[in-house]
Design a binder for these strands. Structure first.
Lengths: 255, 255
DNA sequence: ACCTGAACACCGTTCAAGT
DNA sequence: ACCTGAACACCGTTCAAGT
């Protein structure tokens, strides 16, 4: 830091201060975490990396590709994909062995990893959605789908139901994380002082102030909104989807 | 159009060519539909409205507020909220009367309205998510929640389960519409020539080209991806969630 | 009260020029 | 092959000035 070392192109192939696509993407993730998508600009990137704009464009085509790479990096970290053995029913995410007895736990593990990734990286959910929509060749869609699907398979859902079940899970998880994580983070960005309970209290109060004639249902559950726990709620909703999948595919007499 | 009429401030209070917040929001929706969020700029707005930038800022605080207003306008149109009668169980969206026999149909009607709105306005889902996350005082959250919740109530779910059930439905619907609608639209924006079957075929081919060791599940359902119908898939997933809600709250002997 | 339009600070991206 | 940094076109927003 104090004295810039002169370029010595020999030695190991990897130098920590050399510019590389990997280092750019890592820095982009840091900036996104701290300042959101709006805060990620090529100017702050050139400052943090101590280069010119052109240097970044040498490694990355444009901002869209940079956002895609950042998203893929974070999702890949959250959902490492071990080689698959279709015959095995155990989930590597639950260390307590095969989930034959409680086949839903594998889905819960995957979902929670995504939930926590979205909590740590508030920009993630929106980027995943953008990725799935606009990038046919992207790897984040298949990665999430595969991670969920393996457990759907382990649940004993027949093949014809795989796509529907895995899609429904993915849709629920994406919708839930998009709202939940962005929720906390947005409040935080506006005013770092406010915490989650305060945000919920404000929202609940707003619900209670709604027109009774038009919003009787919403007013009734205002207290449930105030007191709910995000993660617990996420799990409960996930269980509803899983219960629906199980109900749609009752176990046959194969066992 | 040909000759600009001179200002005559008398007559009716409403003149079709006068600038107003309503007219600005309407124009914003048109621009968003045609060019997406990136295409909505104050420059194209000033051109379409034949004014200066300052005139727009007189009626609207900033771009965020304009996006919020556009979102609220579209959602309000998709989900008009009649005064609520908590005792009634019929859904105004299904003209064939009360849904006591098939209590899910009300949810389906609401969900389909949102699905279609998201199809017609590809920018909508992302904006709804942003709205729910960042705008505590906004009306779109309560509106969607109330529309869904009334039918949850009609399904016979006990009060303690209302918040969880309505939330799960909202999360699924938002996740599904976000992916589905943006999907078609993004492909359309890139190349207006490609249609939905072509996009699906490309995606399915990409899935089939994945590494067999890591993506066996995803590869297996590639054909289901290719042949699925968006709307039918959306309904099937919704039915899974509804089945889960029903399973979690089996009807008691109250009837 | 409502509108005009020039001006400001900032953004993503390009590109001739360097090493 | 990789990097520099000035330049370009464009963006959201402001504001003194008009009516």
């Amino acid at each position: 830091m104090t004295s810039p070392t002169p370029r010595s192109p020999r030695r190991t192939a990897r130098r920590s201060d050399a510019l590389s696509r990997e280092r750019i993407v890592e820095t982009a993730v840091e900036v996104l975490d701290a300042a959101g998508e709006g805060g990620l600009t090529f100017r702050v990137l050139t400052e943090r990396l101590a280069t010119g704009a052109g240097a970044i464009y040498w490694h990355v085509a444009n901002k869209d590709e940079l956002l895609a790479a950042a998203t893929e990096a974070v999702v890949a970290r959250a959902l490492p994909l071990a080689p698959d053995d279709p015959a095995a029913t155990d989930s590597p995410a639950t260390p307590d062995g095969p989930d034959a007895d409680r086949p839903w736990e594998g889905v819960h593990a995957v979902a929670l990893r995504l939930f926590e990734a979205a909590e740590a990286h508030p920009w993630l959910s929106a980027q995943i959605a953008a990725q799935l929509a606009g990038r046919p060749g992207g790897t984040v869609g298949p990665r999430i789908f595969e991670a969920l699907g393996r457990h759907v398979r382990a649940m004993g859902v027949p093949v014809e139901g795989w796509f529907t079940a895995a899609s429904a899970l993915m849709h629920y998880i994406l919708g839930a994380t998009a709202l939940n994580a962005a929720n906390t983070a947005a409040a935080h960005a506006l005013d770092p002082g406010v915490d989650r309970p305060r945000v919920l209290a404000d929202a609940a109060n707003a619900w209670q102030g709604l027109d009774p004639a038009a919003y009787s249902f919403t007013r009734t559950v205002a207290d449930q909104l105030r007191e709910h726990d995000d993660r617990e709620q996420f799990r409960s909703g996930l269980d509803l989807v899983l219960a629906g999948i199980a109900a749609a595919h009752p176990p046959t007499a194969t066992a």
